[in-house]
Design a protein around this nucleic acid. Sequence first.
DNA 1: GATGAATGAGTTTTCATTCAT
DNA 2: TATGAATGAAAACTCATTCAT
Lengths: 200, 200, 200, 200
Amino acid sequence: MPRTAKQNKEIREKTQQLILNTSLRLFSQKGFHATTIAEIAKEAGISKGLAYNYYKSKQDIAAALFMNLDDLIDSFRFALADIEDYYEKLRFTILSMLEFVDQSEEFWRLYIAFILQPENADLSKGALEKFYTEMMSITIEIFEGLEVKNPKVEARLLSGLFDGIILHYYIDKKNYPLKEILSRIIDMYSVENIEKMRQN
Amino acid sequence: MPRTAKQNKEIREKTQQLILNTSLRLFSQKGFHATTIAEIAKEAGISKGLAYNYYKSKQDIAAALFMNLDDLIDSFRFALADIEDYYEKLRFTILSMLEFVDQSEEFWRLYIAFILQPENADLSKGALEKFYTEMMSITIEIFEGLEVKNPKVEARLLSGLFDGIILHYYIDKKNYPLKEILSRIIDMYSVENIEKMRQN
Amino acid sequence: MPRTAKQNKEIREKTQQLILNTSLRLFSQKGFHATTIAEIAKEAGISKGLAYNYYKSKQDIAAALFMNLDDLIDSFRFALADIEDYYEKLRFTILSMLEFVDQSEEFWRLYIAFILQPENADLSKGALEKFYTEMMSITIEIFEGLEVKNPKVEARLLSGLFDGIILHYYIDKKNYPLKEILSRIIDMYSVENIEKMRQN
Amino acid sequence: MPRTAKQNKEIREKTQQLILNTSLRLFSQKGFHATTIAEIAKEAGISKGLAYNYYKSKQDIAAALFMNLDDLIDSFRFALADIEDYYEKLRFTILSMLEFVDQSEEFWRLYIAFILQPENADLSKGALEKFYTEMMSITIEIFEGLEVKNPKVEARLLSGLFDGIILHYYIDKKNYPLKEILSRIIDMYSVENIEKMRQN
DNA sequence: GATGAATGAGTTTTCATTCAT
DNA sequence: TATGAATGAAAACTCATTCAT
């Protein structure tokens, strides 16, 4: 008697997730090209063949990793919509970024490594570029809502600052004064300082 | 007529530089593993064999690319030593970074891509880590000279901010408001603001 | 309620036939090696596992396809035995070939493709060679009955002509003047022309 | 000192030919898909890698095998142009075919096997179809020159007959009465018989 | 110093076949 | 009987590196 469709679906989803998780970890540690399917399979405890049963190529795995960035954006937008005050929106954005970093180091490493090398664009099928643009436009909207003088500049600055901090944190985690840095950032976006951004 | 020793040396140096430049460009565009020796040779207009005449492996080329980071640090330190005022030192540091970015996009891209992936450490033989540490300690010294409350935090913040800005600039060069961002940064490190960093 | 033995038998036969038909089509379109079990199963609307339930290997399917060639020969022989006149026997043979061609394009394509490549012999387990030999000896007998000068030569000529015509017909069906060609062939084996084959 | 360009060219051409010859033999014996690059390399006495140095894929080798069919047609056309009498042209055509068969068994086997399976068309990039069409139009022209009643039918008949004979000859070389068959064919295209083709 | 043909180890990918359900 | 997830062996293909010239 064959497995039921539901059983199969569960198996498939579990194995798929296993492959994605393992791949993400290895890709982010060693890079896409330096990671072999054999390694992924071995680490995931499956056969090479099975990996191809789920993803038709190594590229495909990479693409799948970036596939749910859209969902991430959507749910973030959704959560923001619930907040009325723009100061709160900004605060929520900063905290979300922090949370993301904390939980998604591997993903973030891979994201930066990919986005830095133009020829990877076709590997991710433009998903990263789209994510970047979306995040930027959300941040710009917030600064517009805060009526600062130059929303685009402020948005670029905040997100640049953010990625830079994360980058350095990951480079030298052990010695990084993350806590102090974060309170410093939060201070940079205090009501008082935002007031300044409104003036010339 | 055989070449003189001097001629040979010149040829060697020229070819070596050609290989390094070409490799840097390709590595930064496609990544180390995605770049083949065949491509480097073709782009450089030389034979594969010749590349091996100069560098004993592909790794070796990568290592060579990071080799003169030491010189960079030295000359930077040297230049800083000539400046007495710490405000000026900071200003000079920021401007140097700007200049570096402008002239060394490829290098910087490669630097970040490498430093992000721990397993690349043996490719660069620790040169990147050393560079990072040195740069950090120079910056800390400056903030110490400025007698700010928390030199380490300020140093991390500045360099993080800096790399973040560059990162985003490279990601989206066409639309990036670099000029505005830079004056914003310079303002962040105005005398007045540094004064604030002194107080808690 | 379990199925009765009879129901099971019917299912088995139907499924078996489905697999054979699908395989024949795909093998003849793409070749044996280029056709995968997965494709056959998909096209037949069954699972891969089920295919193995009926045939123990891909080879086995190919062998099964050629299995009933023996029956074909037998029934052809049987039909011929009913005809007394050798002119009629020849006529019947030609018409049978025509009919076969019309109905069995896929089979014929596969037959030729297989018989052309010696190393396929073990795939068909010699069935094709046997079929060829049998058909030839039947044709020789007819020409012997017609008392032509050189029955073997005439038999080879007729069957060669026949396969050649079919081959070209299949290569370029749209433009092939099949009707005219056939009447030309039938004319080649007119009583008058057979008379000539009797003379030196 | 590097090899001269001429030396390299010679080496390349020699190796290329070696690969093509070996591939042709194996493809024709076992079929395209059943032949592995490893086998080709081993038979040719070279490494797998070298084969890829010359042809970028297995498909590419197949395509190369059919590449010079155009030349074959051209030179055949050229030779025919030198002959004035249409009876002679026909005679020359028949003899050329015979010669071709004698010298190009492997090629012919491959040709038929490929042309029989529609999905191979992209492997040969249409070269076979073109060859077939060209040969047919040449033959039609000759029968037109001979002013027979139905040149297209006669051309199809001759070429079909021809390929059929070859096919059967290759199927059963040992026992095939090739000589007798050939004189029978030449007789079929005697002046007297061609005269008949002119009448209705 | 310079070349590019040649190698072979390693990587991606395919697919017949098995097997738990 | 029927399914399709899983395997593993073998195939296609890549590329750093060597070496004869």
